[in-house]
């Protein structure tokens, strides 16, 4: 059992740098394509290139939140600690990517629409999504360690169920009142789509890499905590020291 664990650990250790190099290549190629390779947008000019960071970050964040939901449901059913770690890690990294979306959005909006922020449908629903998952991280931080996984998984399920309500309510809220027309809509140049997809792939690889190392760190941390607890149980003098 332990031997097989070590084996899988070793192969993981070997796969990690390979994936890291691959991600670095993809990211630099994506950066080059976004800044040089992609055609300049006719009306917005070079500002539009932030699109290749904004949209892939959003997609990556949504995928990570979806992973968080899946892992939380799995944890509630099967009670595997690994599922809990996956849920934690995906929420953390997802919040980071969601923050990137919320920061790059206004930077793009200011020169194009003339305003930093508008309570438009997509901006508002992304902000609400961000709020939900930040509250999830707060709960994880503030609850006592033994019950954190269960409580967090329950909150993750409720949060994920809330997402369709958020979209519907804000969609209706915003279609009632006329708003500045969003960029995008209509067709996209195939070369732009190509760069977008490359960047998305690079971002997803990067997110996976970060999640992976965070997973290993969290796993190690828990093993160390467990070993400490066990040690102080076996040797009472150390416990009361």
């Amino acid at each position: 059992m332990i031997q097989s664990l070590n084996d899988s650990n070793d192969s993981m250790k070997r796969a990690f740098p390979i994936l890291g190099v691959l991600t670095a290549i993809l990211l630099s190629y994506g950066l080059y394509m976004a800044l040089v390779g992609a055609p300049t947008e006719r009306t917005m000019g070079d500002v539009q290139r932030i699109f290749y960071y904004h949209v892939p970050s959003a997609w990556t964040a949504f995928i990570l939140f979806f992973v968080n939901f899946g892992a939380s449901v799995f944890y509630l059913i099967k009670r595997r600690p690994a599922a809990d770690i996956v849920a934690l890690v995906s929420a953390e990294v997802g919040v980071v990517f969601c923050t990137i979306v919320l920061v790059t959005g206004p930077i793009w909006a200011r020169p194009v629409w003339g305003i930093w922020w508008t309570w438009d449908m997509r901006l508002t629903s992304t902000l609400v999504l961000w709020l939900i998952y930040v509250s999830y991280l707060f709960l994880r931080r503030f609850s006592s360690s033994g019950q954190t996984p269960t409580l967090a998984a329950a909150l993750a399920v409720l949060g994920a169920l809330c997402v369709p309500f958020v979209y519907f309510s804000i969609w209706f809220f915003r279609t009632q009142h006329p708003q500045p027309v969003m960029g995008g809509g209509g067709s996209i140049d195939p070369r732009m789509l190509h760069v977008l997809l490359i960047n998305w792939l690079a971002f997803s690889c990067f997110a996976f890499l970060v999640c992976w190392s965070r997973y290993r760190l969290e796993k190690l941390q828990r093993d160390v905590d467990q070993a400490h607890a066990l040690e102080s149980l076996l040797d009472p003098r150390r416990g009361v020291r």
């Binding site: 939900i132 509250s135 707060f138 503030f142 809330c162 309500f165 309510s169």
Partner: peptide, 27 residues
């Protein structure tokens, strides 16, 4: 009930309740 045994539970409740309630509050 969830924030019952968390640290600083009085502040925890609105932190959890408000984001999830946003669609309901909006409605």
């Amino acid at each position: 009930a969830m924030s019952l045994r968390t640290r600083s539970r009085e502040i925890m409740l609105p932190l959890l309740l408000f984001p999830i309630s946003i669609p309901a509050i909006l409605a």
